[in-house]
Design a protein around this nucleic acid. Structure first.
Lengths: 336, 336
DNA sequence: CTGAAAGCGCTAACAG
DNA sequence: CTGTTAGCGCTTTCAG
């Protein structure tokens, strides 16, 4: 920039003004500066600007895995909102490892991101408190933070499974199984709750042998299926608590050449091409990402408390995103 | 950092030494500094450090769409390699828009990324020349750059389709259709070439009416299918040039309750669960991302020309990643 | 082993 | 409308 100033025969500040599109610059000088910029291939250093302005024009996005379709769609939605704010996004995968989550989050903070969107992997997030007090707003997505208060964007998990069970009930099922994730996981607990509530509303007793809570790997899922289909009155329908479980169940059913009514939680890309088509309770990762990003930028650009345009320090907000039941066949199979 | 120094009663430089783990610091002072750091919740400002050192510890990754499974897997692989180098990655989606690609690439450069990995959307990349000359290494992935020379990581597209056609030939097909993407797209051209070569090697005449080059949307694909299946000697097998086309074909075949031997280029998540299972020529996006990232860091950390550990200014390299044929059923359907 | 001074590239605050 | 000065937070250089 010094060079540009010299080449154009003006001061540093004038170049700065031109670069930042400030008014009050003589047209002649402006064109001279622009010419020098083009000639020298000058590109302003955003890092240096950030140092001065206290804003980096970046946000951090911490997911379990950027390669997982759910998160990659969420990610794209965050990117689009960030783009509207001239902001770039750092994305990182925690790989469900709390230590790695923390390491990444703090690395983002060292880069002085203007804000952080986090899908929690760990159960404790107090390590973020100093950063939050230092002015970095944090929004949690998909799951609440462990031991702090902050903005959140969640799926209506309970409502989702309730809807799924209601659907199976409406198709005549009374023995409905549920295979959910490990109970430590927030979403797993909420989804199980919806399952129980739906049964209760229908006046059907909750039965332990119809429910399994286990990690969504093929082995646990196969074992869970065994349990469900054994005994004198086996399940005639099944609700899967997450998409990986759904995939494991589908593979296992294909292997056994067995079939039962099936509703998955969270959609799968090619669900419509399976036979029968896969009925799901669909989440909306794009809406979650967009909501989280909007909330974050509201905090980042937020005015004083009570400001109409957004409040940087107001009380924490929780946004709940609804689910949608998509009937494609598998959930409409009648009981035998 | 100033505050830490004051609190610990030492100079700025000593704190800097401790933070950077330099040797030659008195143990007593070191612990005093570490205590102050913990007390004040101090976190070094990576941007300021970068300003001084001329390195930001970031790289930019420019894809068509971070939400596309192919790219999100590639993305994760880049992230893992970057992690080994203590580097964070900015990811951005060009949405196949050359203007947006350029805008993003230059925004990354303003953030002074240490390097850039680009999946080209546009046909011209000379706009990157000044940045490359200024010392930002760029690696292109999946497609070559438009009008400059640079490192690249490509799929063996030609070999891939050759393999797919050979597979169908081996299963007795002689009328093999090909639906590929628009010919302007590099990969589309390469894949078509492989198709032709395979037919030629088998001594089968290339027939225009068996080939369609069109965007992979449902309408064009349906029209292409019409052409292939019409006439006196319709295609008995089909090779799809990309995964979106494959999905469109599968939907269209399901709608028509038609069937023919099918091999897709690029794998689909649930390909094994379809009926029949989907036979594909699989690319390896993770290997592509990892190779690109390794190449990039070789340039970033590269020594002088000829250096064994990597050469920052050596001649451009092209890495070709092979494909793998995965037979699952659809590609083994015999001709009627 | 430690510290003081200079400066990375830029902009805020204040002159002219 | 334009320029000067100071300093963002850190590291490099060189002197103790």
């Amino acid at each position: 920039m010094k060079d540009v100033a010299a080449a154009a025969g003006v001061s540093l500040k004038t170049v700065s003004r031109v670069v930042n599109g400030e008014a009050n610059v003589n047209e002649t000088l402006r064109t001279a500066v622009l010419e020098s910029i083009a000639e020298l291939g000058f590109r302003p250093n955003a890092g240096a600007r950030g140092l001065r302005q206290g804003r980096s024009g970046t946000v951090g996005l911490l997911l379990e895995d950027v390669a997982d379709p759910f998160y990659s769609i969420l990610s794209r939605a965050v990117e689009e909102v960030a783009r509207e704010h001239g902001t770039m996004v750092f994305a990182g995968s925690s790989a469900e490892d709390p230590a790695r989550e923390r390491e990444l989050a703090l690395a983002f903070c060292e880069r002085r991101v203007d804000g952080l969107i986090v899908v929690p992997a760990g159960a404790s997030h107090s390590y973020l408190l100093p950063e939050m007090r230092a002015g970095i707003p944090v929004v949690f997505v998909d799951r609440p933070p462990g031991d702090i208060e902050a903005d959140m964007v969640l799926t209506d998990n309970t409502g989702g499974t309730r809807r799924g069970v209601d659907h199976l009930l409406a198709h005549g099922h009374r023995r409905i199984g549920f295979i959910g994730d490990a109970p430590e996981i927030y979403t797993a607990g909420e989804r199980l709750r919806g399952y129980r509530e739906a049964l209760e509303s229908a006046g059907i007793d909750f039965s332990d042998e119809l429910v399994t809570q286990a990690p969504p790997n093929p082995e646990s899922t196969a074992a869970a299926l065994d349990r469900l289909l054994a005994g004198p009155s086996p399940a005639t329908a099944l609700l899967c608590g997450n998409s990986r479980t759904t995939v494991s169940v589908l593979r296992e059913l294909a292997r056994r050449e067995a079939s039962l009514a099936l509703v998955g939680f969270d959609d799968l890309e090619l669900g419509d091409l399976l036979q029968p088509g896969l009925t799901v309770v669909a989440q909306d990762p794009a809406a979650m990402g967009a909501a989280a990003a909007r909330l974050l930028f509201q905090r980042i650009t937020g005015g004083p408390p009570g400001d109409a345009a957004g409040d940087a320090s107001g009380p924490t907000q929780t946004i709940t995103i609804g689910t949608r039941l998509i009937a494609r066949g598998s959930g409409e199979i009648p009981p035998p």
